[in-house]
């Protein structure tokens, strides 16, 4: 593996006024690969993503190390973070219905990323935007450029989102549930576009999801989070080697076509899992 893009060790996050840490002792290293983060709601997976961008107002973030390429994220000021966000690290949000500004034209919103980080004219930014819209398989970029978000479908909205977040050519993209809000029929299409772009450009990807199957098929490695901790890290092909009872429970609860027609296993949750350190 080449130089790691991101090194996280012993990351803890506490929201203002919360009695306990929402994320505790999370450590992982990311290369130019696709890392999945899986967990149920409230397990802290989205919080980790937002902490990397330092977009948790008021929350206390502590870690032994939080290194992104040559930068120590913990030590960066807000002004320095502004140069990182969007340019070197960006995030694809869940639902284009809410994550796109409803009363600005799509093209203008996408171009804003480029204009923010490069000293170019509006015309140049527009050319770049159209190119990127074409890259996410939008057939008629000129037309879509002039549309408002409510005039495009969810699948297209999410492709616009991808275009917006990859436009400035970042090194790391965090995708926070990128397909959960989409129709099942377009999920795969959107994922394939994202996957293709990430591979071609050598971008590191952190895919946050509650969908174990999706992550297993699209990522190289998977972190399994439970109650703010990473309970297990697995290679995508080695799920049969899962050790932790929580992971095994998750796997057992997956329905399979042609599997036995017994009721699915009910997920077991034990308080001690929140305490013990993963092996």
């Amino acid at each position: 593996m080449q130089d790691p893009i991101l090194e996280v060790s012993n990351l803890s996050i506490r929201y203002p006024g919360a009695p306990a840490d929402s994320v505790r002792g999370v450590s992982f290293v990311l290369g130019r690969e696709r890392l999945g983060v899986v967990g149920e709601s409230g397990s802290g997976k989205s919080t980790v993503g937002r902490a990397l961008l330092k977009l948790l107002p008021g929350a206390r973030i502590t870690a032994d190390q939080l290194r992104f390429e040559d930068l120590d994220l913990l030590a960066l000021s807000e002004a320095e973070m502004l140069k990182v966000r969007g340019r070197r690290m960006s995030m694809i949000l869940q639902d284009p219905k809410f994550s796109l500004n409803p009363i600005q034209r799509v093209g203008r919103q996408v171009a804003e990323t480029y204009l923010r980080h490069f000293p170019v004219s509006r015309a140049e930014a527009k050319a770049k935007t159209l190119e990127m819209l074409a890259a996410v398989n939008i057939r008629d970029p000129e037309r879509v450029h002039e549309l408002y978000p409510h005039e495009i479908s969810g699948g297209m909205g999410q492709r616009v989102m991808i275009a917006m977040m990859l436009l400035a050519d970042p090194d790391l993209v965090i995708a926070d549930e990128p397909t959960s809000a989409l129709d099942v029929t377009v999920r795969l299409q959107v994922l394939n576009i994202l996957d293709g772009l990430v591979r071609d450009r050598g971008i590191g990807l952190i895919m946050i999801s509650h969908d174990l199957n999706l992550v297993r098929n699209f990522c190289d490695r998977v972190l399994i989070m439970y109650a703010g901790r990473v309970v297990e890290t697995l290679k995508a092909g080695e799920f049969h080697k899962a050790q932790h009872p929580y992971t095994r429970g998750l796997l057992a609860a997956q329905p399979r076509i042609g599997g036995p027609r017994k009721p699915l296993a009910v997920l077991d949750r034990r308080p001690e899992w929140t305490e013990e350190q993963p092996a």
Binding site: L82, P102, E112, M164
Partner: peptide, 20 residues
């Protein structure tokens, strides 16, 4: 949510408040 999107793009809080 689009306030977060704007921040992720690299806009400052002030720019986000004003433009979006």
């Amino acid at each position: 949510e689009y306030m977060t999107t704007a921040r992720v793009k690299g806009l400052s809080r002030g720019q986000t408040i004003w433009r979006h």
